[in-house]
Amino acid sequence: MGLNKPTLLAVMLTGCALLTGGHPVFADEEADQDRAARWKQLQESLFPHRQVLDSGGIITVDAPPRALDAALVPVELHMTGKTAVKGVYLVIDDNPAPMAAHFVFGPTADPRDLKLRVRVNAYTNIHAIAETQDGQLHAATQFVKAAGGCSAPAGPDDTAALADMGRMKLRLMGDFNAGKPMQAQLMIRHPNFNGMQMNQVTRYFTPARFIRTIDATYDGAQVFHLDADISLSTDPVITFGFVPRAKGQMKVVAQDSNNATFAHSFDVPGTPPG
């Protein structure tokens, strides 16, 4: 049997047009040295003239070794917090646009834990690269088996997806204590068309339209700035850390590749339920 079962399941349930030319099924047979060569090539193009060091315990990346849904692969980045981190890059080596996300942390951030959901197009290494305050790059790696996530349809109905675009939710995770770091989950309705999904009716590819930047500020001070690309999943969900005060406002501004801006302010801690 030329195809292992989980891959077939992903294909069955995610469904997608084969648009990249390469065939993801046999990508796991790619020798480790090819992956290493690709990573080297990526380092040179993404971080020219800079050295990418090993993780050095500064950062870890966590993703399911075998993705359940290639169009929605949950990725967690953890930083120890011992070394001050300026920002973090997420690189999905074998995606058509490997640089998936670049977070730059602001003064009200707690940069220790980040979660996001990405599309994965082929069996690939995922690299998380922390940039320390002194400008050093430290990379952690996780290999993920997933295929077809980039061209998976965003949803059954493109029109409905666009109609609800820009709706946002912010959920505080765990207990709220003024001055103590906590996690918040930001959800944004956006089809995040990456230009690889075929429009069902016209059989043309739906033009790319995806979230390019997200700025989160808390009472005017930056929590994070995110530069994103076509690899974020439909309806992006980002979980991040910040340090709340007794009362404040989280403002989120997202801009997409059509220069549409979506802004929303949330009271933090917000009104208690009931």
Partner: peptide, 13 residues
Amino acid sequence: NALAQRGEYYRLH
């Protein structure tokens, strides 16, 4: 619509 999106991919697999 669904066949346009997925059919060829299913066939290859």
